[in-house]
């Protein structure tokens, strides 16, 4: 696979994250550095307690580091206000969670439309985009269903559609197959793979499941808050 001259999308430079739990300081990340390039499929792997979740939060602009810098498309986000971060997340990053995290009171269509509501996109436009996305994940006949009327695999497909609704460059998936059976998990991973292949999206998958490594261009192994091994294919 040609990887020449792709520009860097996300760059973590010597990132530290220290949580204060009462009197005790817990170091979750200690000097994590990572570079993720445009339309790359990267898998961040590590056992529980390795700082994986914290790394997701950093990459996803959900939290800011105690020390170090995070650059998103060259822009330093390390000291940004929460509302600025929210704007960036909404426009540039699509989230997929292990537990799907759909809003239970909303229909599949409304769930997919929600990120666009926060970006002030017009209703008719939202509806068009959302229904197209749902058809793409083969849920065209489930638009008016609520999450509890859908299977796990279907819910995760709605979540994928939702992650794409603002057409972000980056898809960040945190254990996307963790709550799915092997077969459904494969469907989800294949879809994420096709996003990279066909739409040149940057896909970041965080997991402890080694079998997902086969989709990746790059695998980063995380241990005790830093990357201990980086393999490229």
């Amino acid at each position: 696979m040609a990887m020449v001259n792709h520009k860097t999308v996300i760059k973590l430079e010597n990132v530290w994250k220290i949580y204060k739990m009462g009197e005790v300081e817990v170091v979750a990340l200690c000097g994590l550095s990572l570079e993720i390039k445009e339309s790359e499929f990267i898998v961040i792997m590590g056992p529980s307690g390795s700082g994986k979740s914290t790394a997701v939060n950093m990459v996803g602009c959900l939290d800011i580091p105690t020390k170090g810098r995070i650059l998103l498309e060259g822009q330093d986000i390390s000291h940004m206000e929460e509302s600025e971060l929210a704007q960036i997340r909404g426009r540039k990053i699509g989230f997929i969670f292990q537990t799907f995290n759909l809003i239970p009171s909303l229909t599949a269509l409304q769930n997919v439309m929600l990120p666009m509501v926060f970006q002030d996109i017009e209703k008719s436009e939202r509806e068009k985009i959302a229904s197209n996305l749902l058809r793409r994940v083969e849920l065209g006949d489930r638009m008016r269903h609520r999450p509890n009327e859908l299977s796990g695999g279907q819910q995760q497909r709605v979540a994928i559609a939702r992650s794409l609704s603002n057409n972000p460059d980056i898809i960040l998936a945190d254990e996307p197959t963790g709550n799915l059976d092997t077969k459904t998990g494969k469907v989800v991973m294949d879809f994420l793979h096709s996003l990279q292949e066909k739409e040149k999206k940057t896909v970041i998958v965080v997991t402890h499941d080694p079998t997902l490594a086969k989709y990746a261009d790059k695998v980063a192994y995380l241990h005790d808050g830093k990357i201990i091994k980086l393999t490229k294919r």
């Binding site: 909404g90 995290n101 929600l114 990120p115 926060f118 970006q119």
Partner: peptide, 9 residues
């Protein structure tokens, strides 16, 4: 979740 997908405070 809403904040993650772009909801401001």
């Amino acid at each position: 979740v809403m904040k993650a997908i772009g909801a401001k405070n």
